[in-house]
Simulated assay, not measured.
Amino acid sequence: MFKKLFGNKPKVEDNKNVQENEQLENPTELLMVKLFFKKKPIFNDKLIEEELKKRFEKIEFPNTSEKTENSRHYFFKDYEVKFAEGNIPAQATIFVPDEIKIDYSELITSFRQSWNWQQAEDTVKNCSHEILLTDLMSRNLDYKGRIEYFQKFVVSIVSAMKPSAVWIRNSEVILEPNDFIEKGSQNNCQNINAFMNVRLFNIQESENEMIMDTLGLNSLGLPDFEFRFKTYDPQKIAGLLFNYGHYIFENGVVIEHGNTIEGIEENEKLNCYFNDSQLEPKRIVIEINNGG
């Protein structure tokens, strides 16, 4: 539904007549991906290490004594994280849960909001095993470096282990594995293609009113976007949010409370306000308002 939505570079303008509020920030969150399999996944360390070496120059692999049946831990020395006590490499883990059971209840929203893969729900429900991938000790990295190294890691594991489906927990989207590899690999894995989703919800108490948002920028400490509307074409609003989400990722938080941005219609200006989100998960969003 929301696949071909790229437009021109968004325009942001100051509105000096609007009183500025304190610009709030989202706390960074653990980056988390689940891979789903129809059969029990088996660690092929040789293949995993070959894929990682394609994307990283300096990696510390777990030695034989550190390897267990259900986990792996990697150190990426290309990405140094600075702490007051000293610097350490960014890290990532693979973890296989002891319990062989997929919790479909946590995927309900993702089943409904994975617009680019209509077979997502059926595919995942035909799976019986999962593994969990997370970053570690990397929240102090610049957000672009953080998403770059973690996506390199996930793309490597997906390429090596060939799951049936990929769930990005931070953006609540389920992707077909090859689609994830294509999206995640762009721009040397420094992109927000998979870790930001555009969602659509109907507002039950208000006829014909809808609300759309982005989800995933918040995990990197950036604001998401949210827009409540009645008369607009949802496809066009999806494109608007998608483009502004990428704009924030590329340029940082350059939109300020009270700025106006270019809208859908010719010469249309939309107001932007930092606010608490109306939708779950609760976070700071840039609320877009057409003044109606």
Score class of each variant (00 low, 15 high):
Phe6Asn: 02
Gly7His: 02
Gly7Val: 09
Val12Asp: 00
Lys16Thr: 09
Asn17Val: 06
Asn21Asp: 09
Asn26Leu: 03
Asn26Val: 14
Pro27Asn: 14
Met32His: 12
Met32Pro: 00
Glu60Phe: 07
Phe61Pro: 11
Glu69Tyr: 14
Tyr79Lys: 11
Glu80Pro: 07
Glu80Thr: 14
Phe83Ile: 14
Phe83Thr: 12
Gly86Tyr: 05
Ala92Asp: 07
Ala92Gly: 10
Ile94Arg: 12
Ile94Ser: 14
Ile108Met: 11
Thr109Leu: 07
Gln113Ser: 11
Trp115Ala: 15
Ala120Cys: 08
Val124Asp: 10
Ser128Trp: 00
His129Ala: 14
Ile131Lys: 12
Leu132Tyr: 10
Leu133Val: 09
Asp135Arg: 09
Asp135Glu: 14
Arg139Met: 07
Leu141Ser: 04
Met161Asn: 02
Arg169Asn: 14
Ile181Glu: 07
Lys183Gln: 15
Asn188Ser: 02
Ile192Leu: 08
Ile192Pro: 06
Met196Cys: 10
Asn197Cys: 10
Val198Ala: 04
Arg199Lys: 13
Asn208Pro: 03
Ile211His: 13
Met212Pro: 02
Asp213Arg: 03
Gly216Cys: 15
Ser219Cys: 01
Gly221Gln: 00
Leu222Gln: 00
Pro223Ser: 09
Tyr232Thr: 00
Pro234Leu: 15
Ile237Trp: 02
Ala238Glu: 07
Phe242Leu: 14
Asn243Glu: 03
Tyr247Ala: 09
Phe249Glu: 01
Gly252Ala: 10
Ile255Thr: 11
Gly258Ala: 10
Thr260Pro: 04
Gly263Gln: 01
Glu266Pro: 02
Phe274Ser: 04
Pro281Met: 15
Ile284Glu: 04
Val285Asn: 01
